[in-house]
């Protein structure tokens, strides 16, 4: 996966979301990403305009793409349009609008049974080189054992068994929560900007403050390499805590939580990873978990 990202066209970046990877100009940023239970969707915008919208779904049988785009062409009767040419694996239309052009393109990936539909908006006219690079980069990843999640500056790799149950993005704060049903494990990964303004005290104090009050601290360690964490050069703070008294333990309701935090000085971002699992058994830690800041950080309990 990393090799693929590294091989990107200059000026391009990759967004990976819910089993779809797509490369696009770096100045196009994600404005909308689908939540759990919603149809898969991704919207990219530049400074002024929406530039790309992607929808994808797994189908039981291959769709008739020619018929799909013929129907779309009929619905666009009032707008001049022509067939999309030069992209043999894609079907679609190029629509001339009052300002610029809109490209509707669709492709079925038989190995993953996935239909991907893209709408590319070209306010200043089509750039066919960029368009081709984007269309060629589209790749379903749902059949891979380790999925990459990459958007809004956050980059996580994690086993496919984990589902993204919550994703929020506020100004300078991106937070994703992943959940694995069996054996149960919750992972929350956050990336926060402008730490020099809001990080008043040191990182351990902030981590302790962010932890829910019901959790009692067990241990606080700081490591810069080999100990409990990490193969990066960042100093990583680890905070172990537990919730639940005797009764909770008796009914197997007690929970363990481990908070990891580190400051990536190159990006000037604070990263926080929270893992929570039932206290009566080990964590069954995902071996593939990787969070990338300026380097790849592999966290281990």
């Amino acid at each position: 996966m990393m090799a693929k990202a590294d091989a990107l066209r200059p000026g391009f970046t990759q967004t990976c979301w819910r089993g779809l990877a797509i490369a696009h100009p770096a100045e196009w940023e994600a404005a909308r990403l689908s939540d759990q239970g919603q149809p898969n969707q991704l919207s990219l915008v530049d400074r002024r305009y929406q530039r790309l919208e992607a929808h994808w779904q797994v189908l039981k049988r291959p769709p008739n793409l020619d018929a799909m785009y013929e129907r779309l062409g009929k619905s666009l009767r009032e707008h001049p349009h022509k067939q999309l040419l030069g992209q043999p694996e894609w079907r679609g239309l190029v629509q001339d609008g009052p300002v610029g052009q809109v490209v509707h393109a669709g492709r079925f990936f038989p190995a993953q049974s996935m239909l991907v539909e893209l709408v590319l908006i070209w306010p200043q006219g089509r750039d066919q080189q960029i368009e081709t690079a984007i269309l060629r980069s589209v790749a379903p990843t749902i059949d891979r054992p380790v999925l990459t999640w990459r958007a809004l500056g956050l980059h996580v790799e994690l086993e496919r068994e984990f589902d993204l149950t919550e994703a929020s993005s506020h100004v300078g704060r991106v937070c994703w929560t992943f959940e694995r049903a069996k054996p149960a494990l919750w992972l929350t990964i956050e990336r926060l900007a402008m730490g020099k303004f809001w990080l008043k005290n040191d990182l351990p104090s902030w981590l302790a403050k962010e932890r829910p009050e019901k959790f009692r601290p067990i241990n606080l360690t700081t490591s810069s390499g080999s100990q409990s964490a990490v193969d990066a050069g960042h100093q990583i703070v680890r905070l172990d805590s537990q919730w639940g008294g005797r009764v909770a333990r008796l009914f197997r309701r007690a929970q363990r939580q481990v908070d990891f935090g580190w400051l990536c000085s190159e990006q000037e971002r604070v990263y926080r990873l929270v893992a929570r699992w039932p206290a009566h058994r080990p964590a069954f830690w995902p071996e593939s978990l990787l969070v990338s800041c300026c380097r790849s950080v592999r966290i281990k309990v």
């Binding site: 940023e29 500056g153 300078g172 900007a193 000037e268 971002r269």
Partner: peptide, 21 residues
Amino acid sequence: EEVIEVFALEHKLSFREGQLA
């Protein structure tokens, strides 16, 4: 736009993050 650019550059934000803020 220029205010956003300078602010984003100073605080290592992407343009969109700077734009929202």
